[in-house]
Amino acid sequence: MLNPFTIAKRLHAIGLSGIGQRNAEFVLMYNQRRFYPRVDDKLITKRLALAAGLPVPQLYAVVREEHEIDELHEKLKNREGFVVKPAHGSGGDGILVISGRRGDRYRRANGALLSREEFDHHLSNMLSGLFSLGGQPDHVLVEYLVQFDPVFDQVSYKGVPDIRIISFLGYPVMAMIRLPTRLSDGKANLHQGAIGVGIDLATGITRRGVWGRELIGEHPDTESSIVGLHIPHWDQLLLIAAQAYDLVELGYVGVDIVLDKSLGPLLLELNARPGLAIQMANGHGLLHRLRKVQALEAAGALAKQPAERVAFAKRDIATL
């Protein structure tokens, strides 16, 4: 049992960044408010990404009004699986993953069946803004359900694992893969019970995981080791994270990417206030890495090309 002062001292030594520091020194300093809509509205993010030639999951439909919900069933008639999400959702709230159907009902990723009525109610809640930041009326995106890469089969419980990379001024500084668990209901958000597994930036090999406040080495549902996995397409993932900065012009941003079996990496969404648990998954604080990039900034030596930034990150940031 450590006393709080020792904890604070040790955390400071490894450069752990608290929520106050993240907000005061990075989010508020590097993220201009006028660019927030680019990440807060997933529809805008998607359009920007398409314009920049970044791969994203295909958009099937957008629902803006209550009455469009009825038409949606018709539009989705030929789609076996799809994902429904609020455009302004935060923290994965409200996302509905439909993996198939049975008669008139939809089957969710966790196996539960959803009647049409329940499905409609959920969408109407999304439109009223139940899941959106600040509760304003929202619109709903329906998009391609990622067929995830089998490399993660042993370490996911239903749902889609995704990769979160923190990008600071276009430099990837820290990465983790988020694995859904039984507890997280197939969702890949840590506060809902998913596991975060730190990834070594230079090699793309997983290191260890965090589940809640607990450090772990195996997936709690499948018991497979989550350490030492090679993330496929690693360089491409880092490149997408580096390019995301040019896309939205937010200095401090969390980039969420999924790996599709056939399509490869797809940019899912961006987050202007990425969480701090990634530090636990990596067993290391963000601060030293961020300071290194800030040193470049102070020296006026920030690289223009995303590829250069990735190279710098793999060489100089990863060893911190």
């Binding site: 450590l2 709080p4 020792t6 904890i7 604070a8 040790r10 955390l11 490894i14 752990l16 608290g18 929520i19 730190g198 290191r207 260890r208 965090v210 406040r213 607990e214 450090l215 701090l276 530090q279 636990m280 990596n282 067993g283 290391h284």
Partner: peptide, 13 residues
Amino acid sequence: ELFRFRALAEDPI
């Protein structure tokens, strides 16, 4: 946060 990240302080990489 000291409690949240305690595990990390006890066992950093």
